[in-house]
């Protein structure tokens, strides 16, 4: 491009874009900064050690958030492990195995599924799934880890499906035609061509799904019972880090109890950051 004398609108235009970019950058840091700053009094000295105990007794000055960290794992991990194979199956079916006429519909459905409001799933499950689980388990109240896991799996699978579909479609068409012309069945194409080529994207989808499962608040808040107890029983209750934040808001701004909520926020932020780095490492985008 020929370098001409830059006119005012050039400066303004580029300046505006750069400012917006700076704002976005600053926002990301600001969220981290706010969490860190507000959690700070708790991260210093003795209170830091109480943070990583399993006793949450704010009235006695004990702010252990370990039960919530375990709760997050107990809900998010099984949900992701359940949702991943299902999403993989769906994505294979929608791209290669289904009758051609169905494929577009299935892809469209996956897209629409991402738009279903979380709170609607939660509402439906409170009145449908929870009593069912209570009667089937024969113990507990039905507000349980398993209820949250089932609904969460349903909630995060569309995200994974869309990533997997786009990964499968990124496999060059000519290669797929090669497989076809050599007489490979669609199943063989999927097994011998797509899976090996899309392994990284598949792990990426798994991790992104895990991130969504960790970050979801409402499902666990509405369905998991929120007892402050290290989870041991799938039919028993649990409290996740996210629902803990939602529940303890009702406290004094200055108190250590309130600070511990920010420690949960900080922990979640760091978890997501690590997951993001991993996903980026696995699926280096060409034009990002």
């Amino acid at each position: 491009m020929i370098k001409a004398r830059r006119r005012p609108h050039e400066w303004i235009g580029e300046g505006a874009a750069a400012t917006a970019a700076l704002i976005t950058f600053a926002l990301t840091l600001a969220i981290f900064g706010f969490m860190g700053w507000l959690a700070m009094p708790l991260l210093q000295g003795e209170t830091l050690t109480t943070l990583f105990t399993s006793v949450w007794r704010p009235d006695r000055g004990q702010f252990g958030i370990l039960p919530m960290a375990w709760g997050t794992l107990a809900v998010a991990l099984p949900a992701t492990l359940l949702a991943f194979p299902l999403s993989l199956g769906f994505a294979c079916f929608a791209t290669h195995l289904a009758p051609r006429r169905l494929r577009k519909t299935l892809k469209g459905l996956a897209g629409l599924m991402t738009g279903i409001p979380t709170v609607v799933y939660g509402f439906s499950a409170v009145f449908l799934l929870v009593p069912l689980i209570r009667e089937m388990a024969g113990r507990g109240s039905g507000f349980s880890i398993i209820a949250a896991v089932l609904v969460l799996a349903l909630l995060i699978s569309p995200t994974m499906i869309l990533i997997l579909i786009s990964a499968f479609e990124a496999v060059p068409q000519p290669w797929q035609r090669c497989f076809d012309s050599m007489g490979a069945t669609p199943e063989e194409t999927v097994w011998h061509l797509l899976f090996p080529l899309a392994t990284r994207s598949m792990v990426g989808a798994l991790l992104l799904g895990l991130g969504r499962a960790i970050g979801d608040t409402l499902i666990a808040l509405m369905l998991a019972g929120n007892a402050v107890l290290a989870p041991t029983d799938p039919f028993g209750p649990a409290r996740t880090l996210t629902s803990h934040i939602g529940l303890v808001m009702a406290a004094d701004v200055e108190s250590l109890e309130f600070r511990s909520v920010f420690a949960c926020g900080l922990l979640l932020y760091l978890l997501i950051f690590v997951l993001t780095l991993l996903v980026r490492y696995l699926t280096r985008r060409p034009a990002a």
Binding site: P67, S141, F143, G225, N226, A227, V228, L229, G236, P237, R239, L247
Partner: peptide
């Protein structure tokens, strides 16, 4: 007891 479920 810690197994108690919380409501708001």
């Amino acid at each position: 007891h810690a197994s108690a479920l919380f409501v708001k």
